[in-house]
Design a protein around this nucleic acid. Structure first.
Lengths: 356, 356
DNA sequence: TTTTGCACTCTATAGAGTAGAGTGCTAAAT
DNA sequence: ATTTAGCACTCTACTCTATAGAGTGCAAAA
């Protein structure tokens, strides 16, 4: 029933109601205390008496946009209320170009890939005073650029994979026999020739299946290469699943009154550490084109009940690589946070582009 | 004045006083509430009346081992009290061999270096229910094992350094001209020949100073190599200073009653994030032979006022590599925590050894 | 439709009173 | 010379009560 109404919420309500609602949300975001009719009367500049305002507020509560903590407190926006506010009423400030430049400059100054991502996250949290998060590009559509073997102590070999023009993975394998540097060199050369530029998944599959079949028909040095490659990629199956979120500024959330209780904070921080839930949430955001905002209970995760997550995918070479955003209380300055997240995503994309 | 006494604290106090003191500390560690004379009378099995105990407790307070939160609360150990307790009264439980094996097994199961360290940290926090920390080996006495160049897109070259048999560093440099793979190969070979097995600092210095001088006297391909090496090591000066602490289980500290206030927790967490102070503290512990425990205010850092830090250096090949430990409230189960930290350090050393 | 007036509700705060825990001191007991 | 019992005293934590303030909802007037 209510949901039928809710989709066309803004058209069902009078101009005046919306104006008052907007004023209320803005006041609450500023203050943090429930807003009463008297306050709103002064605040809204409509020359309406508190009584009239009370009637309007009662209506707004009926349609689920407001909520009263108790009889004699003012009103507070619900998640649904924030949703309407963000979707239809909010006027987003453009960032000053000086700020944009500052962001761009900071990101451009990071030379290598991983510190760029780390810096992006910490910049998000610094600028918004909330928690920042960056989801790193999913590694499953990775292009192998280069493979290299380095001999460590006897029968331990270090495998180095350069992936996607920027990322370096390494793992250690234990071999049956001891390889000389020149043998390893030869093997690297051979594998690079075949596989450089190919997709990692394809490489893996090819090595473990196709090459296995033709193993008997090639010369001995190629056999060595095949064996080595198999070892290198065999251990890879269950590798690094979940090491792809970068948080920063979590402690900023400790100042937020709404989350003031230690036990709530603890649950929230544990959710961050486990990464799983946040990852799932951000994965939803990667497919939506453009920014996505999860408000309070909308996220579907209990721990995020009083939190909003503002996200934006970032892309380079016209391809979406990942998602970044900030996590803060539902009562946040959306008009400031939204453009910051937006710009940061674009700037990160630009920084990644310029590295090619 | 008092410090003269304090050094020989235990000899100044009667056997009985010490016994009572020990019982009090143990009781407090268990309970968390100040211990009164009545409670201690029952608890200590000495058949003394509360009045007598009160006299003793007053003495212990005079020498600074105990403290009274207020007139009608019981007593609580001071930092100095914990110090005496830990140094002279504590009887450490040996770990069950099953537990030791479990730790060893978990660590042995980690294949690569960085996840071994990460796992060590998280194991410390899991087992103790406190915060775990591992300080990674300082990279300044690093032996260069292998250097490799990989061509990325035009005039961007990826430099890969293998250091200390396990660690892989990589950075990207922008070059004036575009190098071919075979050129890079040649350069790698040349540099490896000269520098493999040398100390990184020495390598750096040599490349930037000595080679510069002889640059004119060598053939062109060597000149290229020298230039490339200079670029690779030039950006290195201010690199990674402070990325060498691994925390885990910080959220465990949120359960600790003594740290219950959000603002204190916030400061503590920020101290963790900044890493600097904790790093300094652990650096003190690296030189002390064997375990070191910082109790409350002893650490010299205000944020750690209600915290103790139990540390142990870990070593492989007879050489101290770093420090690990746990951070918790001063009121912690030292008799459990101390052997855990001790064993973990040894097991980590063993795991590192077996990788050679 | 809006406003005034008014009774009503709920919270937050302060104050008073009380029970309980524990102390320190003095005087008696060992 | 210790140890203990007795006792007055202190401080906290909790409960109860009262009160001011904010804000509501409704009915009747504008």
């Amino acid at each position: 029933m209510t949901s039928m109404v809710s989709t066309t919420e803004s058209s069902q309500l009078s101009e005046r109601s919306l104006h008052l609602f907007k004023a209320l949300v803005e006041h609450f975001i500023e203050d943090g205390t429930p807003v009463g009719s008297r306050t709103l009367s002064k605040d809204s500049n409509l020359g309406l008496s508190p009584a009239t305002i009370r009637n309007v507020m009662a209506d707004l509560e009926d349609v689920g946009l407001l909520h009263s903590p108790h009889t004699s407190a003012g009103r507070v926006p619900t998640a649904k209320g924030y949703r309407l506010f963000v979707d239809s009423l909010l006027r987003v400030n453009d960032l000053k170009s000086s700020q944009v430049e500052k962001i761009a400059k900071e990101l451009a100054s990071e030379s290598d890939y991983s510190s760029l991502m780390q810096r992006t996250s910490s910049m998000l949290s610094d600028v918004t005073h909330l928690a920042g998060v960056v989801m790193l590009p999913r590694t499953n559509k990775s292009i192998l650029q280069h493979i290299e073997f380095v001999s460590l102590s006897s029968n331990r070999v270090l495998v180095i994979l350069v992936v996607n023009d920027r990322e370096v993975q390494n793992r250690i394998i234990n071999t049956d026999k001891t390889y000389s540097s020149s043998e390893l060199q030869q093997i690297s050369n051979y594998l690079n020739e075949i596989f450089a530029g190919k997709d990692l998944i394809h490489v893996r599959k090819s090595i473990l299946e196709e090459l296995e079949k033709m193993k008997d028909q090639v010369n001995q040095s190629m056999q060595l290469a095949i064996e080595m490659a198999q070892m290198a990629f065999n251990s890879d199956a269950d590798k690094k699943e979940g090491d792809d979120l970068l948080f920063s500024g979590q402690t900023n959330l400790m100042d937020v009154a709404e989350l003031g209780q230690v036990d709530k904070l603890k649950k929230l921080f544990e959710t961050f550490n486990q990464k799983r839930d946040i990852l799932h949430l951000l994965e939803q955001a990667i497919n939506a084109d453009g920014m996505q905002i999860f408000i309070g209970e909308e996220s579907g995760y209990d721990v995020l009940d009083n939190c909003s997550v503002v996200t934006s995918p970032y892309e380079a070479d016209g391809q979406i690589l990942g998602v970044l955003g900030v996590i803060g209380p539902t009562r946040m300055h959306y008009e400031r946070v939204i453009p910051i997240v937006d710009i940061t995503a674009k700037m990160l994309g630009a920084a990644l582009n310029s590295k090619n």
